[in-house]
Design a protein around this nucleic acid. Structure first.
Lengths: 97, 97
DNA sequence: TTGATAGGCAAGTCATCACTTGCCTATGGT
DNA sequence: ACCATAGGCAAGTGATGACTTGCCTATCAA
């Protein structure tokens, strides 16, 4: 849903998480926590970040793959491309290959 | 602020208002109320819409010009273009003239 | 000048959301 | 088998946000 995408993007911490994943894909929850704390001064609990990741995932902005006891998180920009065309027109989401 | 833009876009009614303005620029508050009601079945009070317009305006997504007792609202897509480049890259907001 | 139209201000309600705390499960190393 | 690591579940709290109601101001037409 586009609804979920907009709600997911409404929170600053979630946008920070997307920033983190754009810079380095496939991070675990603990890695994301560490980097948010170190680079952005975000002092939230592990659960807070976990819940944010859940919101991002159910919006389709993040895809996760489980491997052993680790869960890796990857960014998915497809939903982003779709929502912008709503007011900017179809040219607004093309990426030059 | 990008912060305000994302928060402004988080509400479904506000997105509907943008839809309305993209279709017909320069509407008054009462016009917007009427069209939201007629076309989208939005049954909100005048104040509710007025407050939404205030949010959109302080996010820079809507610009208003007063003329006599009327206040006309125009869409401004510039803030939209800026926020998308954050995760999609600079090509994502170009419009073909 | 009176009345109708277009809009604004302010307080109050109710729901949603972000975040925490405490406990539980599962995988891997030694 | 044990313990540390990686993550999940659920209830509770506090704050933010959407919406309403009531009243007030300003512009225009008769």
């Amino acid at each position: 849903m586009a609804e979920d995408v907009f709600k997911a993007l409404a929170d600053p911490t979630r946008r920070r998480i997307l920033d983190e994943l754009v810079e380095r894909d496939g991070q675990t929850l603990f890695e994301i926590c560490g980097r948010l704390m170190a680079k952005h001064g975000v002092g939230l609990s592990r659960q807070a970040i976990s819940q944010h990741l859940a919101v991002l995932e159910s919006a389709g902005l993040v895809v996760s793959r489980r491997q052993g006891r680790y869960k890796y998180h990857d960014l998915n920009t497809e939903p982003l491309k779709r929502i912008v065309t709503r007011w900017l027109g179809p040219d607004a989401s093309e990426s030059t290959p």
